[in-house]
Design a binder for these strands. Structure first.
Length: 337
RNA sequence: GCAGGGAUGCCAGAGUGGUCAAAUGGUCUGGACUGUAAAUCCAGCGCCGCAAGGCUACACAGGUUCAAAUCCUGUUCCCUGCA
């Protein structure tokens, strides 16, 4: 399947604030990355609609000639409010985020989220959703589904109102419902009626032990239209992505390759390399001898070990370049014809 | 040489009569991280023990005291002024 001119499946690194941490746009390009995920909520808070519009959008700001997908802020509804509480409040009409610094309020609605995504000038929009933990109770999952459907309709309407074709923008919706089959079915059915350009698996993709919730992922994948992109949000570890490709998903994003790189966990064809371990201090091999990334072509494990042990910025950069290249390679191997 | 100040774990550095195996950082060793509040977080780090627990420290030598890392005396070393 293709999306724009891209082969699916695709992995999109997270560039929350308009940067994949530790790498420049050129370096990012050289990892074979074609699309990145930016975050509506974080950009709304930091740059805002007006400023970002003046600056001409995030692509221009980043000097990025690839594609941009903007997450709606729905994950922050989960990570900042449901998970930590006290950082905001959710109602059917609006979501309030409370700043932990000075207590000031930020208001987010499905409409504001869309306006912001236009300011970002992204290629793929996401309708605001009420994201929950994978083990969410039935009662909460029901609320989440109700809000998500309602917000998706409002997002869709607002998106259409502003979308003067032919600008080739797409909008995806997120299927919530926790582990409850009927709720997932209802959510999927109603969202499909609204005719979005793609559908996303919503919620936390792993259980409290970190194990991929395969049964729920399968259930939801089977509810999605076959001819449209299927995006498993927040997935995941290399093996989790491969499992999800088998289930039918073809779009992925996750902080794991980038965050783990910064923390010294590197992926290789021979398994995980914890580069900060002392055994790599004098190791003059590349991180992965089968890898063609800038890091592996030019530097040794000993060097990356040394840099990361001493908290040098370049260590994070080289590690990130490697992990992203590894992920893009992995997805290439999983392209289905 | 004179006058002050100081010596506590690998480093930095609290504690100034009992509640002190030794705060807290850092280093070090593990681990976690899944639509990024994350260059973050958690655990361990004198010795023995899986653990409960036990044992040993606060430059060195004496002393005072029921009790000293903490008070006194001397020694060694370091720092800061003045010569």
């Amino acid at each position: 399947m293709k999306l724009f001119s891209l082969d699916l499946p695709i992995f999109m690194p997270d560039a929350t604030l308009g940067t994949v941490r530790a790498v420049s746009t050129d370096q990012l390009k050289n990892t074979n990355t074609k699309m990145v995920v930016v975050n509506t909520y974080h950009l709304y808070l930091t740059l805002g609609i007006e400023n970002l519009t003046k600056l001409g959008g995030i692509k221009k700001l980043m000097n990025w000639d690839g594609y941009i997908l903007s997450d709606s802020g729905g994950f922050q509804v989960y990570s900042l409010i449901h998970k930590k509480s006290n950082l905001g409040k959710i109602t059917q009409y609006v979501v309030y985020f409370k700043s932990p610094v000075n207590g000031s309020k930020t208001l987010l609605t499905p409409e504001i989220s869309i306006d912001m995504q236009y300011a970002i000038d992204s290629d793929i929009f996401i309708a605001l959703d009420d994201c929950r933990y994978s083990g969410v109770s039935r009662r909460d999952a029901e609320t989440s589904v109700n809000y998500t459907i309602d917000w998706a309709r409002r997002a869709r309407d607002h998106f259409d109102k502003k979308n003067t074709r032919p600008n080739n923008k797409k909008i995806f919706a997120v299927i919530q419902g926790g582990s409850f089959k009927d709720l997932r079915e209802r959510c999927a059915r109603e969202l499909i009626e609204m005719d979005f350009d793609g559908y996303c698996f919503g919620g936390w993709p792993v259980d409290d032990k970190g194990i991929l919730v395969e049964d729920i992922l399968k259930l939801v994948a089977d509810l999605m239209p076959v001819h449209k992109p299927r995006y498993a949000m927040g997935v995941g570890k290399p093996e989790d992505i491969e499992k999800c490709v088998q289930l039918g998903y073809n779009m992925f994003d996750c902080v794991i390759p980038t965050r783990n790189a910064r923390h010294g966990i590197l992926y290789s064809s021979n398994g995980i390399v914890r580069i900060k371990h002392t055994k790599y201090k004098l190791d003059t091999n590349p991180i992965d001898s089968n890898c063609g990334c800038e890091t592996c072509r030019n530097y040794t494990r000993a060097y990356v070990h040394h840099l990361l042990k001493n908290n040098e910025i370049l260590g994070k950069t080289l590690a990130t370049i490697h992990n992203l290249y590894y992920y893009q390679d992995l997805l290439k191997k999983n392209v289905k014809i």
